[in-house]
Amino acid sequence: MSVLVYVEADGGIVKKSSLEAVAYGAEIAKGAGSSAIAIATGTVAEAELANLGKFGASKILHVSDERLNDGGIQATANVVFQAAEKESAGTLVMARSSLVDAIASRVAIKLGASVVTNVVDLPDTSNGFVVKRGVYTGKAFANVAVPGDKKVITIAKNAISPVESGDAATVEAFSANLSDADFAVKRTKVEKAEGDILLPEADKVISGGRGLKAPENWGMIEELAKTLGAATACSKPVSDMEWRPHHEHVGQTGIKISPTLYIAVGISGAIQHLAGVNSSKVIVVINKDAEAPFFKAADYGIVGDAFEVVPKLTEAIKEVI
């Protein structure tokens, strides 16, 4: 049975997380002696899709229906299901995103498949099919046996590091059967910060907490983020007070991120905050209180006043990159 990978694009460009999903799917296919096929929806450049061959896809199905650009949950779930049926897919792999998180369950029911989300590593297939997934909000991992011959898996960022090899693959138009019922939920408006580096995808993240005192003090955080090519994030009280937009809030009740570098400025490091960021590869903490709990979870720390340290750090980084 083949492996199907759902590929998401943003502004016509395939997301980096989807490249990871293709590489992940290709690994599973290789182990099972089958092939990995990708399915993409909406407007995506043909060359972008063909390029997925280099990450291990043998063929790419493309449903170019523009109505799917609105990211409809019901409609996208139905398309992915139909592609899985067409290709008799045993395993469906998707990289976590706001859309994938919403469709994985629906596709699983349509397929009669088992479903596991937030998988952090390749499966262990030595005895059945066992995956490692994050549980207790980042505080632990579970090894979960997934029964049955149909499986839906969503993977966390960095579950695999994709390497480019191989050749471009063929792109095949696929037309799914969609009815008006699939589009019953209407999108009326989108509010999106354009041009920013999106937090869930970001490789580096600079985060500010209540220690920054007021929203107008975020200039230096943004400056540091710009210098590093990083996304900005914040603690919960900061978004609760509307100093920063809600989608920047990380932690137990916010977004969970796993960048390679997380710099926390003026954040105490409450357990609920750590839950969202503790799978970052390297954590740097800047806090004026040497007793702040965040230092226990950090790799590097500076005990000092953020208003002095951050601008100096930005200057020092500019000198080396």
Partner: peptide, 22 residues
């Protein structure tokens, strides 16, 4: 056909934080 939680692990602890002079 439910999934089976076989075992749990805790994340690897961080080694000591290196403190750098501001």
């Amino acid at each position: 056909g439910v999934t089976e939680y076989q075992s749990f692990t805790l994340p690897e602890g961080k080694s000591e934080c290196k403190i750098i002079d501001p």
